[in-house]
Design a protein around this nucleic acid. Sequence first.
DNA 1: TATAAAACCTATAAAAAAAGTAGGGTAAGT
DNA 2: ACTTACCCTACTTTTTTTATAGGTTTTATA
Lengths: 137, 137
Amino acid sequence: MLSKKTKYALHALTHLGQKEERTPVQIQEISEAYGISHKFLENILLELKKAGILGSKKGKGGGYYLIKEPKDIPLSKIIRLLDGPIALVPCASLNYYETCVECKDEATCGIHKVMIKVRDEMLKTLDNKNLEDILKE
Amino acid sequence: MLSKKTKYALHALTHLGQKEERTPVQIQEISEAYGISHKFLENILLELKKAGILGSKKGKGGGYYLIKEPKDIPLSKIIRLLDGPIALVPCASLNYYETCVECKDEATCGIHKVMIKVRDEMLKTLDNKNLEDILKE
DNA sequence: TATAAAACCTATAAAAAAAGTAGGGTAAGT
DNA sequence: ACTTACCCTACTTTTTTTATAGGTTTTATA
């Protein structure tokens, strides 16, 4: 399951994507709309900004806005950013690879091989769905 | 990512599946083979038994053994049993459905609709891979 | 240029979940 | 009878997630 962080990110991005114009939206507007703690959301939006998904403007009248086209923001990117790996086991992760401690030999581990396939299929699904798909629904 | 519980379950099932015969295997043999705490593994095997995947025999010479064909044990079943929902959000879960608190109206929620599709695709992947696939690799 | 508004940043605390531990009960084989 | 090993419940520790706190910096505007 997704963490609240990721879910909140999806709501925030959806909210920003629904606006006709890409003018700055304040944290408070979003936090109130979905009942998210202001400060918690702040951290999330900051991460989205650092990842190049959002832009921001400081000072009065400032806020956050999308700097990418919704169709160019796949679910995989959002999930990886806030939740971490897509793969089900560390040894099958592309971006967060780690050896599995209880595994003796990756080369002969059936779990490893199957999980690589699972990861590929999941990735196909999550790369293929983006913010635009959410907005269209 | 999968919990250690689920990973341990996969290792245990693989171990049991690799045996030629379906004679009882003691917890200790499995816990030592993978460096899993005896007691922790005990709980896991018990759950697998209650789910009808394993059988057990008490007393001397007892232990656990597979009572299902590896091809009839899909990953989805193991994951659901030990980790819970396959879906990424509670409102998209078949077996563990819950409404999402921050969501006003499921019927118009784009996230919900996209997540249903994601769940369907993930389920297809995980229903389609089973213990036999792990053993064959 | 002072003031207020809003993002930015770092650290810490609280809560929840996962992982592991303990200890005894129960059934079955020898 | 005795031992082995599953069965069951409760508890503790650790880790992760969620949330809070408090200050700094930037910008609009009066």
